[in-house]
Design a protein around this nucleic acid. Structure first.
Length: 582
RNA sequence: GCACCCGUAGAUCAGCUGGAUAGAUCGCCAGAUUCCGAAUCUGGAGGUCGCAGGUUCGAGUCCUGCCGGGUGCGCCA
């Protein structure tokens, strides 16, 4: 249970006893740690609504709370702030009783859609945030007590497919895939490698941009693929297999995994019946040869364009596949919600899809959430580019961060004598932590500036700092065991630094709940950092392994163990596990 | 043009549903290591919260207008 919830209930009861709504009893961690540990500002609001003096009401509430032995101090400050400080015994008891955590009351099943890589297109920095935030949201959902299903939602069904097919057809028209008379079976071996795809796609894309006739050809091929032309389907399956292997590897390097590897193509069979049903219900209309669904509403401030179900050439767009995907998810997993971790520039698109889903009765609109995120920018404040001005591949970024982390480790003399493979594994973890923490510690919706030197620093609010704190705590516990310092006992509060650390540990549930409720992982990052800071202060101020008093020693070891456990739990949710040593 | 996001310390950013003296981190200045990992810790300087009005007992937070930056607006994803 949340400690703040327990305190809120107490204060709420006091408000009720004075004839006010218990909700005024909301207690939170104090903004003024120099004055108190917790505060309740309810007296101001309650008095305002009742036309009473807030200070006087605060005194009445405080008088009731003072009777509880839980509190070491209850006071009223300023216009009516109620300041609360718990006894050290109460703090220790709650920590040892497992307080401070949090779990949702009603477990739900939530699908997280956070990949969206396109076949034949290498992953680039644009995919990074979706991967990092999505993976974290998936873990956050689970930490909150819900069930999560991560779906990569491959972009395997759009115009790029037609562009690729036609490009290969031009290059090698002799292949059986392009012979309408060919009756199969088609070759098992892919006619193209990953490198071919990565070369051919930009080539095709550029050609289509330059030549309308070439573009029309690609659109026709896309439509033919979607209509089921056997040769195109066979070729497309090769694209899929070749791409997936490399995509999987890159996500794994980032510690990102998916439960479902579904894609747009998987829902293709659902599209025709779905649209037919919409048509029968009179929800669609033909406009300029395209079949659309109008979604504008009376109170709209902006003009929301209709969702195009079928283009005038008969091919579908991603709005159509997104709708069919909702249908598929509903039937196969019966999710309570679906989260889309996708760039904020697609907000209008998801507004369209969500409205369409609601209007068509496919899925409740308010259970579909677009968890959009901002852009990762370069130091110039503009979207991140390579020196040449191109898009940086994710592979290149991972290598860059890897190397930087390895260099940092080498220059500080860490991991000496660990052996090459362990050192490399540590560098990978440090690099991933640097990258992920930098991303997640910003509010999801804001843009941020990518600064590799700052991110990989071991100083300040960085991923490596957190890893270091974890490693140090583990090291202490190992040393204590080796030195026969005794087993960790129940944490107790003695020194001010211990009190501060215990208070931080008790705030974990609030951070978890805030992060989940608001779908903002940075609350958890903030907690992790402040927790690590509290630990470092405690560590600097208190002897642990060689503390002479065995009772204090055991309590402090217990505190270290509690810290290490909680930090590692949070690091796990953030998707940046610490090494055992470094 | 319309809609949305943003503007807080030299830099990068927090600030929950309106509450006390606007917080961190980096950088800068001054300290701390016969001791468990100093990649650390302690302290200090540094802010007209873009501008101007308004609502309120109280505004970084809510409302209006303006200035500046970014993004999106029908057959790409």
């Amino acid at each position: 249970m949340l400690l703040t919830a327990e305190l809120s209930a107490l204060a709420g009861a006091a408000f009720v006893a004075e004839g006010y709504d218990g909700a005024f009893g909301a207690v939170r961690v104090s903004d003024r740690p120099d004055l108190a540990q917790f505060q309740c500002n309810g007296a101001l609001g309650a008095a305002k609504s009742a036309g009473q003096n807030p200070r006087a009401l605060g005194e009445k509430i405080a008088a009731r709370l003072k009777a509880d032995p839980l509190f070491a101090a209850v006071s009223v400050a300023g216009p009516g702030f109620i300041n609360l400080t718990l006894t050290d015994e109460a703090l220790s008891a709650r920590l040892n009783g497992g307080a401070g955590g949090w779990r949702a009351e009603t477990p739900e099943t939530i699908i997280v859609d956070y990949g969206g890589p396109n076949i034949a297109k290498p992953l680039h920095v644009g995919h990074l945030r979706a991967a990092i935030i999505g993976e974290c949201m998936k873990r956050l959902i689970r930490a909150a007590g819900h069930a999560a299903i991560g779906d990569i939602h491959m972009g395997d069904w759009g115009l790029p497919m037609g562009q690729l097919i036609t490009e290969i057809a031009r290059d090698r028209p002799d292949l059986p895939y392009f012979d309408p008379a060919f009756e199969g079976p088609y070759p098992d071996q892919s006619p193209v490698t990953l490198e071919d795809l990565e070369r051919l796609y930009p080539q095709a894309s550029a050609a289509c941009k330059a030549d309308p006739a070439r573009a029309a050809e690609a659109r026709a091929a896309t439509a033919a693929l979607q209509a089921g032309r056997p040769g195109y389907r066979a070729l497309w399956k090769h694209f899929l297999a070749v791409s997936r292997a490399s995509i999987e590897r890159e996500y794994e390097d980032l510690g990102v995994t998916f439960d479902w590897w579904k894609g747009e193509a998987d829902v293709d069979p659902l599209i025709a019946p779905m649209v037919e049903k919409l048509r029968a219900e009179g929800l669609t209309e033909i406009d300029d040869g395209a079949e659309i669904m109008r979604l504008a509403r009376p109170g709209d401030k902006k003009e929301l364009p209709p969702l195009i179900l079928y283009k005038s050439d008969g091919a579908v767009m991603y709005g159509t596949t997104d709708l069919a995907t909702i249908l598929d998810r509903r039937e196969t997993a019966h999710p309570d919600r679906i989260f889309y971790v996708v760039d904020g520039r697609q907000r209008d698109h998801f507004e369209q899809v969500f409205r369409a889903a609601g209007k068509a009765g496919l899925y409740p609109e308010d259970r579909l959430e677009h968890l959009w995120f901002g852009t990762m920018n370069g130091k110039d404040g503009k979207p991140f580019k390579t020196r040449a001005g191109g898009v940086l591949k994710l592979r290149e970024l991972i290598d860059m961060v890897d190397q930087k982390a390895a260099a940092r480790i080498a220059e500080t003399g860490l991991a000496e004598g660990y052996g090459a493979s362990e050192t490399a594994a540590i560098a990978r973890k440090v690099g991933v932590a640097a990258l992920k923490f930098a991303d997640l510690s910003n509010p999801r919706t804001s843009d941020y500036i990518f600064d590799i030197d700052r991110f990989t620093s071991f100083e300040g609010k960085t991923g490596p700092y957190l890893l270091y704190a974890s490693v140090r705590a583990r090291s202490i516990l190992r040393k204590a065991a080796q030195a026969g310092a005794g087993a960790p006992g129940a944490p107790a509060v003695g020194a001010p630094e211990e009190r501060a650390l215990v208070l931080m540990l008790l705030q974990y549930g609030d951070a978890l709940k805030d992060a989940f409720d608001r779908r903002l992982p940075h609350y958890l990052c903030d907690h992790a950092f402040r927790l690590a800071q509290s630990f470092s202060s405690f560590y600097a101020a208190c002897r642990i392994v060689d503390e002479a008093d065995p009772k204090i020693r055991a309590a402090r070891l217990g505190l270290v163990a509690a810290f290490a456990g909680q930090l590692d739990t949070v690091l796990d949710i953030l998707g940046m596990p610490a090494p055992e040593r470094m």
